[in-house]
Design a protein around this nucleic acid. Structure first.
Length: 272
DNA sequence: CGCATTTGACCAGCGC
DNA sequence: GCGCTGGTCAAATGCG
């Protein structure tokens, strides 16, 4: 959209009227009385015109300001559209496993389409916040990596005030994989996940290899722990990385909640 | 009523 | 041996 009329040549906003406008050439100056009257009238008119010019100037500045803000807003709208599009399109190049920035109402563990989403300690501890504002989009990420996790413990560790949650894979009773999830001490918006062990069973909707990048699977920029780093290190080949990216892309593309959440988050940033 | 989560208690490893 | 810390257990609790 464009404020086209602003640039039209037939619309001239400059209403400044110079003193010459009031000059009446060739007028006889003999009649003193009339001259005095004229002088006072001229002064009055000039003063009025000065006021009008002043107001015009102010209005012009105001309009310029509004147009500037409009253009800025338009630019941000474009950027937002690019982001959404990127999520939509670049899903084909995103990382492995399902990760979703979800509305808080999805925080509780649910089984969806055979895959399970496990909530971390932080997620469950924020139930109150969820109840307080169900319409707000949470910054928290619902963990969704294709496996079913069962929480079996929680502990506050020494180096981090945020509690650490312990999960076991409940997809198969014999599976010994464990997962630890803890909010980063430096940035509480970051969830750090650590995986231990290997799944000895198939995955519900993702290939087992996706599980080897737990950090990415959490949908958060993870500061990899030693063990997680070891596991991530096992998928450093470009082919494998590409594969993981494609898998995550598909998952995100098919996740309407993710799209909605991203759009809501963007609009929330724009108007606050 | 069944299942998942919560949470305090317990255990093991490690450093002093 | 003691204390600290991380990890696990299991009874209690909540929810659908």
């Amino acid at each position: 959209m464009e404020v086209a009329w602003l640039n039209r040549p037939d619309v001239d906003l400059d209403l400044t009227i110079g003193s010459s406008v009031l000059h009446i050439p060739g007028r006889p100056s003999a009649m003193k009385q009339d001259d005095d009257d004229d002088d006072s009238r001229v002064k009055t008119l000039r003063a009025e015109l000065d006021r009008a010019s002043e107001e015009n100037k102010r209005l012009k500045e105001l309009l310029a300001d509004v147009v500037g803000k409009y253009e800025a807003l338009r630019g941000r709208m474009s950027d937002a559209a690019v982001v959404v599009t990127a999520v939509d399109d670049d899903c084909s190049s995103a990382a492995a496993a399902a990760a979703s920035v979800s509305p808080a109402t999805n925080l509780k563990t649910k089984t969806v389409g055979g895959a399970a989403a496990s909530a971390s300690d932080e997620l469950t501890s924020c139930k109150r916040a969820r109840e307080e504002s169900k319409t707000k989009i949470s910054k928290l990420c619902v963990v969704k990596d294709g496996y079913q996790w069962r929480k079996y413990g929680q502990k506050v560790t020494r180096d981090n005030p945020c509690p650490r949650a312990y999960f076991r894979c409940s997809f198969a009773p014999s599976c010994s994989v464990k997962r630890k999830v803890q909010r980063s001490a430096e940035d509480t918006s970051i969830l750090v996940a650590t995986y231990e062990g290997e799944h000895n069973h198939g995955q519900s909707h993702l290939s087992p290899v996706a599980n080897k990048v737990p950090a990415i699977a959490e949908g958060v920029p993870v500061k990899s722990s030693k063990k997680a780093a070891e596991q991530v290190g096992s998928v450093t080949s470009p082919e494998l990385r590409r594969s993981l990216v494609e898998q995550m892309a598909v998952t995100l593309t098919n996740n309407p909640t993710f799209k909605t959440a991203v759009a809501a988050a963007i609009s929330g940033r724009m108007f606050h």
